[in-house]
Nucleic acid binder design. Structure first.
Length: 214
DNA sequence: GACCAGGCACATC
DNA sequence: GATGTGCATGGT
């Protein structure tokens, strides 16, 4: 199969099989950012417990997270795992957010995508996937999010070696799919969905909508 | 009890 | 640049 067409074919098959994913599962863009940090190497069900705790304590705002102590925050997000380090990371983001943008998402959103990405990556605890998740799902910028499922899926379909760089995976999507926030949103969500169903660390290819491709 | 989950930073070679 | 390790809870 021609790789130029395969990513589009994958998308069409996944979209037909699963339908709309309605991502990101959050009530506000700010909540997306917090969720993006909490879900690092962590199952979403655990993140949900932490988000639920935050909501119960009415902490899902920049001001509240700025003012709460690190120790209290870490206990509240404990169910998400890595809770001490994640509390630091949330604090680091919120500090950056106030120092540079007064805690105002609209101000952040006005900036150029390259500038935002560079600034996010300079925050300790925010790497490429988290930065791109924030850009796409919270700030609605057309950038593709590469995650473990993306690497498994494309490597298993012989499109790219699993050990290829984040940028190489991302470039495939950017080159082969016209940048579009809604399409990138849906595609990444579909990859996570099919990944959870079929493309785990030990894959189950039987029944996968992409089972018979290439 | 082992394995896995929507990463990242840091040490070492 | 590549590889190894710590970080941690909760579901299967």
């Amino acid at each position: 199969m021609n790789n130029t067409n395969s990513l589009i074919k994958f998308y069409n098959l996944l979209s037909a099989f699963y339908g709309p994913q309605n991502w990101w599962p959050a009530e506000t863009p700010f909540e997306v950012i917090i969720g993006a940090i909490l879900t690092q190497n962590t199952s979403w069900t655990n993140v949900e417990k932490a988000i639920k705790n935050l909501r119960k304590e009415n902490l899902l705002s920049p001001e509240k997270l700025r003012d709460i102590s690190y120790l209290q925050l870490s206990e509240i997000i404990r169910p998400s795992g890595y809770y001490r380090i994640k509390a630091q990371r949330i604090k680091a983001f919120v500090n950056f957010f106030y120092e540079n943008y007064k805690g105002n998402l609209e101000l952040l959103k006005e900036q150029k995508i390259e500038k935002i990405r560079f600034q996010l990556l300079s925050i300790k605890g925010i790497g490429k996937e988290t930065a791109d998740s924030i850009l796409l799902y919270a700030l609605e910028k057309p950038i593709f999010v590469v995650d473990i499922y993306t690497k498994r899926l494309l490597s298993r379909h012989q499109i790219l070696n699993f050990k290829a760089s984040y940028e190489e995976f991302q470039a495939l999507f950017h080159d082969q799919i016209t940048p579009d926030v809604q399409i990138y949103n849906e595609y990444h969500a579909l990859i996570v969905k099919v990944g959870k169903d079929f493309c785990k660390a030990t894959p189950i290819c039987k029944g996968c909508p992409l089972e018979n491709i290439s």
